[in-house]
Simulated scan of single mutants.
Amino acid sequence: MTWFMPPETAPQERIWMAFPRESETLGEGSVAREAGYAAWAAVAHAILEFEPVTMIVDPTETARARQMLGEGVEILERPLDHFWTRDSGPTFVQAPDGSLAAVDWIFNAWGSPDPAEWTNDRGLAAFIAQAAGVPLVPSLLVNEGGGIHTDGEGTVFATETVQLDPDRNPHADKARIGAEFARTLGAEKVIWLPRGLTRDYETFGTRGHVDIVATFAAPGKVLLHDQADPGHPDHAVMREIRALLEEATDAKGRRLEIIPVPAPETLRDAHGFNDWSYINHLVVNGGVIACGFGEDRADARAREILSHAYPGRRVVSVDAREIFARGGGVHCITQHQPKARA
């Protein structure tokens, strides 16, 4: 059977998240850890204005999660390693009859050589699928949800340094990956980006996830990260990616309309050039949960662009600086479950 991944703008049943647990990623010291917990909780509460949220919680964090999330968020206990549900969780797809299923990609913590880093996470997709009451679609591809974007009409974005990463899929090539995307996502065409943002190749990086670079607002319409400052290394990265997309066509043969989304004005944090991006937003029923970076002018400009790109949806900003400091954004810590089609 060939499955189909609907666009992220399709009606949704709920959002899945994972609550942080003490780890190197969460940070050292109580101040850093509390900032991380608060950032995840703020995203969950923002989503609740639009649709239900189910939070997977490691048993060591249950009491804290219940206190910070309140009664509105459903909590399911399960041992966790990481808390980036877009990547360690399943990708929801539909069968030809509209019923739902969940793709179980192989997860190896973004190419980590240490199996101890993903022992618990390897079963997370199956756990979520069972909780959602949908069948599991197994896959032998090492992949993460943040490494793909689809327009819902057969076009998929991917990145050469992710799916072709020898620490992920050492024997794969574009043809094999394209065939697996066709089987699991209904892909008719894969548009391959050469790489991701510069910071994404450092300690907490994913080695090039597309969901911080480009996304489909609608078929044929692409929101693209725009780093205008030539002093930032992502200026050259995005110039190359934009040139590629300007020449690309989608699965239906259309040229892409590119909508640049300017990066925040802040270029650096305590660790060097940042990768702050408004592309890493979450589309929900009737709304968009956007990343905010404490810059009134830039955050407002991003909300305006997103409002035009997603007409009829209310755009809400949530401060994402503490999430980005740990390696991702709002899209990275969430996984949407589409509604089954009748």
Rank of each mutant, 00 (worst) to 15 (best):
F83N: 03
T9L: 03
I128L: 15
I106V: 15
A35C: 07
V222Y: 02
P166Q: 13
P338Y: 11
S307K: 13
T119W: 05
D250I: 11
T266R: 14
G253C: 12
R321A: 06
G72S: 09
A325L: 13
M1K: 01
I279G: 03
K252F: 01
D58W: 12
H308V: 12
H232K: 01
A18Y: 04
A125M: 09
V57A: 08
R64N: 09
I128K: 02
T2V: 02
A126C: 05
E144V: 11
N169P: 02
S99Q: 08
P20K: 13
E180I: 04
S23Q: 10
I258Y: 09
S88K: 01
R255G: 12
G253T: 11
A172G: 09
W192P: 15
P59E: 03
S112L: 10
P166V: 14
Y310N: 02
D234H: 02
E77M: 05
D234S: 05
F107D: 00
G294T: 13
H82Y: 05
A172D: 14
H271C: 00
A102T: 00
W3P: 00
V284F: 13
E117C: 07
R14I: 06
N169Y: 13
Q227I: 01
R183K: 10
R301Y: 01
G294D: 12
A270R: 14
D200H: 12
I333T: 08
A340I: 06
A298C: 11
